[in-house]
């Protein structure tokens, strides 16, 4: 059937465009304006050209934050994706317990970020927190406010606790869509459990897993609230990820120029990842459409 082309429909998205203009485009333009200027307050600005960009690119601060960010995203992906798949494989396929598992798995996803941070901040405290106090009583030197390793472990475990269920739920949805005939064929061929996973389940899950990986990468790349509440970016700068560093620069030090330049570079990276995400999603749709 021939599709009708009517460009007047674009007017229907006008309200959204106006909303986005006020909430995103105008602030972004202001950030671009700030990034080439310097200010000492009172809305008085001095032209600085590309100095802030040059300074940031040459300084270690942004690169270190980016490095920490990449390490963090890498670690949580390496844990959450296999763990999520493992959980999904072991969840009941149907019946009462399937529903119970689904509800339980979605619970952490419903908790707001700052509440997750507060929960873990208290949970891990050595004086009153269950986890911190227990570890301390067992003779393990654990203090996330002073020890680099403990701070990283806490932030990573917190993220795994919060987001593994997202991967698990997506993988579970992928598993549910596999027709029984595939498993029956595998049984006839006397395929091992590993072979079933490798040649049936994994290929059928690849689409949703791709979405899960990209979602988790993007989300963790922009993480702010949880580490901010738990460690505040410390000890020292140990858990100062990109967005935490950016807020420190913009609001803590009120260095609007450098912070704006930082924001633009951060935005470009996020934009690139989002575009890759969009391309992968549309290509998956096309692939599913042609199958």
């Amino acid at each position: 059937m021939e599709k009708t082309v009517n460009h007047k429909a674009w007017f229907l998205v006008l309200p959204v465009l106006i909303l986005v203009a006020f909430s995103a485009v105008i602030p972004l333009m202001t950030v671009v304006n700030y990034s080439v200027q310097d200010t000492f307050g009172n809305n008085v600005f001095f032209w600085a050209g590309l100095d802030w960009f040059e300074q940031l690119l040459a300084s270690d601060r942004m690169w270190n934050a980016l490095q920490r960010q990449l390490v963090f995203s890498g670690i949580i992906l390496a844990i959450e994706v296999p763990l999520g798949i493992f959980v999904a494989l072991n969840m009941p396929k149907k019946g009462f317990w399937a529903s119970v598992c689904l509800v339980l798995m979605s619970l952490p996803l419903l908790i707001p970020w700052n509440v997750v941070g507060t929960i873990w901040q208290i949970f891990a405290r050595v004086d009153i927190g269950l986890l911190g106090y227990t570890l301390r009583s067992l003779g393990i030197n654990y203090n996330y406010t002073q020890d680099f390793f403990a701070a990283w472990t806490t932030v990573i475990v917190m993220d795994v606790w919060h987001w593994t269920s997202l991967v698990a739920l997506l993988a579970y949805a992928g598993l549910q869509s596999i027709p029984d005939a595939y498993y029956q064929a595998a049984k006839i061929d006397q395929a091992s459990r590993w072979a079933v996973f490798r040649y049936i389940e994994l290929p059928k899950m690849s689409g949703v897993l791709m979405i899960a990986i990209l979602l988790r990468f993007m989300d963790s790349f922009m993480i702010y609230t949880e580490p901010f509440v738990v460690t505040g970016g410390g000890p020292g700068n140990a858990t100062t990820f990109l967005s935490i560093d950016l807020v420190k620069m913009a609001l803590g030090q009120f260095d609007l120029g450098p912070a704006a330049a930082f924001s633009i570079m951060y935005f470009l990276v996020i934009l690139t990842i989002s575009y890759v995400f969009y391309i992968v999603m549309t290509n998956l749709d096309k692939r599913d459409g042609t199958q």
């Binding site: 105008i26 333009m29 202001t30 671009v32 304006n33 700030y34 080439v36 200027q37 200010t39 809305n43 600005f45 032209w47």
Partner: peptide
């Protein structure tokens, strides 16, 4: 619009 701190180069860029 003064709060947006416009400059000629950025204006040209967006234009």
């Amino acid at each position: 619009m003064s709060w947006m701190a416009w400059t000629w180069p950025t204006m040209a860029f967006f234009a």
